[in-house]
């Protein structure tokens, strides 16, 4: 079986910073791979390179066996943009300030149909379905981004990515801004999509508590390079790299601690 996504020696420099240095990994269909690492270690950059939002310096990215272009043109976005979706770390910046929640989803649904006309009733039932799936209410339909709360905007961005029914979703801190109950609901939804529609996820996060219960495998990045990779259970019970151990040690525990004297 060929992997859904295979990344081979991917590199990207910004000035004198190696944001991605020789990054290689594979992602199977229906797999959830967590990408963890400290701030500035290159997680978002790797995600953006895969989604074609950043030009690659060198290396290969293959999707379903096809070699993805080093630099994306308009046509490439049309071809791959629907299959590989990205949920952005910063939802406000990713939303058009003049589009209501319903407009955002309608535009995405049209794009997913490659611009083919859709009946108004079809569009509006599609919009309602996805709003509901991420726990937004009908009262949020006509709100502009700044009229939604932080977590509601985040869920709108998630719904926009999901409604295009991609094969691969690069999720950049998708649930970090969400409270625990909504977080559980979104993770549930993602798990269901994987099972029912065979979606794969590259799940960028710093929240190890979420990784433990959600990911199949974990990839640890440090200063642009992959330093450890393994099945989630193994990595948590037997971390190899010092940086991974450090991550696990510093992860806050949700239980009362006596204040330091």
């Amino acid at each position: 079986m060929t992997a859904l996504l295979s990344v081979d020696s991917l590199c990207k420099r910004f000035g004198d910073v190696d944001a991605a240095k020789d990054v290689s990994f594979v992602l199977d269909s229906e797999e959830i791979l967590a990408l963890v690492g400290e701030s500035g270690s290159g997680k978002t950059t790797v995600g953006r390179l895969i989604a074609g939002l950043e030009n690659k310096d060198s290396g290969e990215v293959r999707f379903q066996g096809h070699l993805l272009p080093m630099t994306y043109g308009q046509k490439d976005f049309l071809r791959w943009g629907r299959e590989i979706q990205m949920i952005f770390q910063n939802p406000l910046g990713a939303l058009n300030p003049f589009f209501s929640a319903a407009d955002v989803l309608a535009e995405a649904l049209r794009f997913a149909r490659s611009g083919k006309a859709m009946k108004r009733s079809e569009l509006s039932s599609g919009t309602d379905f996805w709003l509901d799936a991420v726990g937004l209410q009908s009262s949020h339909r006509n709100r502009l981004p700044h009229q939604l709360s932080g977590g509601q905007r985040q869920r709108l961005v998630i719904a926009r990515a999901l409604c295009m029914e991609p094969r691969l979703i690069v999720c950049d801190e998708p649930v970090s801004a969400l409270d625990v109950s909504i977080q559980a609901q979104i993770l549930d939804l993602l798990r269901r999509l994987r099972k029912e529609r065979g979606v794969s996820l590259l799940f960028i996060t710093h929240d190890l508590n979420v990784v433990r219960q959600f990911a199949d495998r974990v990839l640890v990045m440090y200063r642009g390079a992959c330093v450890e990779e393994g099945a989630t259970g193994d990595l948590f019970s037997n971390p190899q790299h010092d940086y991974t151990r450090h991550l696990l040690e510093t992860c806050p525990v949700p239980a009362y601690q006596e204040p330091p004297a």
């Binding site: 559980a184 549930d188 929240d207 508590n209 979420v210 433990r212 239980a255």
Partner: peptide
């Protein structure tokens, strides 16, 4: 709220969302 808090030290236990939505 506390019951649906993930904690990696507790193993791969999936957490349950609180069913339902807040009022409009």
């Amino acid at each position: 709220l506390k019951a649906c808090t993930p904690n990696w030290r507790a193993g791969p236990r999936p957490v349950e969302p609180i069913p339902g939505l807040p009022p409009p």
